[in-house]
């Protein structure tokens, strides 16, 4: 790739990653959410991988990193779903921010926006979904780049 692309793609990747994180955090009030934000973060990673190539890219994830964060995303989603099942009777039931009246007000209002209703577990679900999608999509592209490298080596 050209020098201009190599100079500009890392700053753009960083800005894309920040935009994705912002989309995840506003998922319960604005369009977007966990999947969309995670895909935006992954797009920053993909841009960097395409321009610099696998092995030279400044943003590269190890197998352990992807495994850990994809597992945390999936486990968090399941745990929040089970909280709804045990507290409300349905899987992923929105039990609200004050589960069993034991959560302090400062934590209840952590992601509360000026609105009469509290979004409850939705922002936290978005965060876990975003983590999972970001790790999963990045992993797919890293795998494709690796397969391409193998194919090129075989042809040679």
């Amino acid at each position: 790739m050209s020098q201009i692309l190599k100079l500009i793609s890392l700053p753009i990747s960083i800005i894309l990653i920040c935009l994705g994180i912002m989309t995840i955090l506003g998922g319960h009030i604005t369009p977007g959410g966990g999947f969309q934000g995670g895909a935006m973060i992954a797009s920053g990673v993909i841009l960097s991988l395409l321009v610099y190539g696998l092995g030279n890219s400044p943003i590269e994830f190890s197998h352990l990193y992807v495994e850990v964060f994809e597992s945390i995303g999936a486990l968090g989603f399941i745990v929040l779903g089970l909280v709804g099942l045990f507290a409300g009777g349905f899987f992923l039931y929105n039990v609200g921010a004050d589960i069993f009246n034991i959560v302090p007000a400062s934590i209840q209002n952590l992601l509360h926006y000026p609105d009469p209703t509290n979004a409850g577990i939705i922002p936290y679900l978005n965060i876990f979904v975003g983590l999972k999608v970001f790790a999963g999509l990045s992993c797919i592209v890293i795998a494709f780049e690796g397969f391409k490298k193998f194919t090129e080596e075989d042809e040679e």
């Binding site: 190599k6 890392l10 960083i14 990653i17 920040c18 610099y52 890219s57 590269e60 975003g130 983590l131």
Partner: peptide, 14 residues
């Protein structure tokens, strides 16, 4: 979230 993603940015590879 920023710390999670930024921990893998290594410009030494370029």
């Amino acid at each position: 979230f920023g710390v999670i993603v930024g921990s893998q940015i290594k410009t030494g590879n370029i």
